[in-house]
Structure formats: C-alpha cells, structure tokens
Amino acid sequence: MNLKKIYKYGSPPNFYRFVMKLEPWCLCLGLLMIAIGSIGGLFVAPKDYQMGDAFRIIYFHVPSAYLSMSAYAAMGISSIIGIVWRSNVAFAVAKSIAPFGALMTAVALITGMLWGKPMWGTAWVWDARLTSEFILLLLYLGYIALHATIKEQKRADRAASLLAILGIVNLPIIHYSVVWWNTLHQASTISKLDSPSIVGEMLWPLLLMIIGYMIFFVGVICRGGSAEVLMREKRSNWVKEV
C-alpha cells in the first residue's frame, strides 16, 4: 500500500502537476523572505562590535554555504532513491540540483573570500573548512561533467549518481571541520539553537535569509526538475496536455 503510494506520487505526471502547483508559492515566499532578510541584515541590524559593517556579509555567506551542503545532501538522497527504486523522477531532480548547488558553493566561496580579505587579512587559506568546501565544488563539477559526457541517458544517470553518493562522505567533514581541527575559519554561530552566539536583533535576518534561500531553492528545483522530467518523457502521452 505504502509503496504503491510512493509510486503514484513518484510517477512523472503526478510529480509534474504537484511541483508546478508548488513552484509559484515557493518562489514568492522565498523571495519575500530573502528581501526582508536582506533589508534587515543590511540596514536594520546593528554593527558588530568588532567587524563593524563588514559582518553584514554573513547574511549572504552563511545561507549560500548552508544551501551548498543541503543541496548536496538532497542530490545524494535523490541519487540513492534513483538507484534503489530506479526512479526516473529522482534522477531528474538530482540532475537539476547539481548546477544550482555548484553555483551556491561558488557563491559561498566568493563571499567568504570577500569577507576574509578585509577581516582575516587574506582571501584564501588552506584550512580544513575552506579545503573541504572547495572539494565540494569539485564534486559538483565532477557530477555535472560525468553526466554531460556519457551519451546514454540511463547510464549517465546511474554513473553520476554513484559519484554523488560517494561524495556524501564530504558533508560531515565540512560541518565538523571547525570542531575537529584548529581552523582560521570561525566555529559555527547558530548550531546551538537554544543560545546562539549572536544577539536576537542580528539573528532574525540571518534565519530569514537561510529559510528564504531554502524555499527559493525548492522553487527553482521544481522548475528545473520538471523541465528535466518533461524532456525525458517527451514521447509519452501525458506531456501532450501541458
């Protein structure tokens, strides 16, 4: 019964109808939260006692860094689903996540450099956090390149998914790198939710930004994933209606 349900909602037409309904809501809500969060972060939140205005980069650096990791987790999970249940939809979703995740990783690295240059005194160091985030970017690029190079769709899906699943090992390394090693990168600010190391008036725009990025991400994946599903199913009957 349960498995039947999964197959029902995982079938391409149902998936397509569902995400197309979901997409505008996600985009509106996500963009609204990002807008409020940016204004709050850039203009409302007070200056930091040490970094002054430069700390405002946190509102753009942290959400993209979070998203780069959770997008990879999502890609890995849908790759597993795709390989185990041979679900075409899951492969399509994983494939459409990859470029987005790669871009977010790049943004996290670039904003981090822009932050590190004035504050640390250097744009880049090879400490554990930065190195493992850089490896994440390479993993995304490897996935994209592998998928693009193999001609045959089915084989490309499964081969790239295998690579994505292997790369999941990197996620806990990124997350705990600041705990396990002495890094130049700071420890996590909001990992402990009961008492974050940041005052409330600085925290709310950050949380808004993080959640906004996540919802926006879901919206974009709805769009990109459904496009991918359409291309794969272009010969089947149900797509004629859309």
Partner: peptide
C-alpha cells in the same frame, strides 16, 4: 564605510547567482 566594496560585491554576487539559477 571601508567595507563598501566587500559588502556590496557580495550582495551583488549572491543576487546574481539567485537570478541566474532561476
């Protein structure tokens, strides 16, 4: 202040990335 370039270029890069993906 001194950080005009750094803050605004990171804002720009982030927004550009969001629009590009969409």
């Amino acid at each position: 202040g001194d950080y005009n370039f750094y803050v605004w270029s990171s804002v720009f890069v982030s927004m550009l990335a969001l629009f590009l993906t969409y």
